[in-house]
Amino acid sequence: MLMKYFVPNWFAGFAATSLLLFGCAKNEDMDLSIAGVAVADANFQELEDAAIRGGVVTTLSNKNPNDLQGNFTVFAPTNDAFARLGLRTAADLIALQQPFLTNTLLYHVANGTVTGAALANGRESASALGPNRRFTVRGGNMYVNGSRLVATDVKATNGTIHAVDKVLLATGVDIVQSAVALSTSQVFVKPELTFLVEAVLYCELAGALTASPGSAPLTVFAPTDQAFRNLGILLKVPLVQAKDIRLLPKDVVTAVLLNHVVGGANGGKFTPELPDQTTLTPLGGTPLTMGPFANGLLTVQGKSNATPANMVIPDVQCTNGVVHVIDQVLLP
């Protein structure tokens, strides 16, 4: 399973909610629970739809039994945050496997109260799912992982709500296991990253991308299946299905794969932590050119690419690093 953590299902308060953040002043006297605050704002319709699809069964209308004060903290994705993943309606959510969606919602929740004032550059915060979230300041904005906080400290009788502009994603397993989960339809109903997984196996690089005690974190740029198919068109090699990657010489595929993995000082970095308008040196040694940091994203370009690659799904937290899914193969 991509999300290995099991958490008691107390998250169903979202099943009838969208979060009232922009309609409530911070200092307004509140006597509503998080679920009660949540209903009125259309900016969070997709969060409501996601919670219904996620099958959560208890409610954030109630006090949190795991906190002495009975509080939760919720980092709440806006409609625009879901739209970044191509999720704009309730019907779109059918593309996601339900267990993955449920665990994703849990990753947005913390026990207790985490106020906006307590968020500081470099600080970490535990989640209900298990993995910690990390806070970064860039350009005067506060980010949690790669998601910008767009509203903070909306009070409720059972906790605090902060709004974010990207959906937070964490897998609970290492980079290889995460890619395998995508390729075997444990995340999206439709398989993804099948070419990448096949290429890693072909080149015997799984060990280098697997978590081990004391190993340094990695930043991995992971090309989509369509990115590999497009590469096949460019090379005039029929890359139709994942096994076709073995039509290419093993040493060539190895060099290309190593061009997607960054370690050292820039390993394990979310988008706001990555340098822009400069180069990064991947394990393959040929520098990658990073574009400007804009709207929480960066482009990345290989030396032999005519155009930069865009981040399709950025900031996926794994146990041994961070994966950014991109729309091109980066060529050395």
Score class of each variant (00 low, 15 high):
A208T: 14
F135N: 00
V180R: 10
G36F: 12
A50N: 10
T171G: 13
G140C: 01
L298C: 05
A117Q: 15
A15D: 05
G86H: 09
T59V: 12
G23N: 02
V189N: 08
I326H: 03
P217H: 10
V154K: 13
V253Y: 11
V329Q: 02
G55D: 05
F6E: 06
P191M: 07
Q328G: 00
L168E: 03
I175R: 04
E273A: 10
A128R: 15
N121A: 11
N132T: 12
Q317F: 13
S18P: 11
A91G: 10
V252H: 06
A117M: 14
K243C: 00
V167E: 09
V109M: 01
Q241A: 13
T224H: 01
V329T: 02
R123D: 13
A265C: 05
A38E: 01
K190T: 15
T157M: 10
P223C: 06
A156Y: 00
N9A: 11
D29V: 15
H260R: 04
G23C: 02
V252C: 02
P238A: 05
G55E: 02
H162K: 06
Q69I: 07
K190V: 13
N145V: 07
R84I: 11
V180T: 13
A110N: 12
A76E: 02
N121S: 12
D29W: 12
T281I: 15
A206P: 00
L283W: 12
E28S: 11
K303S: 11
G296A: 10
M1Y: 08
L274F: 00
V176M: 04
N266L: 07
S18N: 13
N266D: 14
N43I: 01
D92L: 13
N111C: 06
Q317P: 08
A242W: 04
P332Q: 06
G214D: 09
D92T: 07
V56M: 14
C318P: 06
F293Y: 15
S127H: 04
E46S: 13
H162A: 04
G285W: 03
A15F: 08
L129R: 07
P308S: 01
E204Y: 12
G285N: 00
R88P: 04
F44K: 10
N230P: 00
T78C: 07
A126D: 13
L129Y: 12
G263T: 08
Q226E: 12
S212V: 14
V252R: 11
G122D: 06
T136H: 10
V256M: 00
L96Y: 01
Q241Y: 10
F195W: 02
F75V: 09
V256A: 00
H162G: 02
G321C: 05
P282N: 04
G139A: 07
Q317K: 15
L182Q: 11
V150Q: 11
I52F: 06
T160W: 12
A76F: 03
P275E: 05
V197W: 00
C24Y: 14
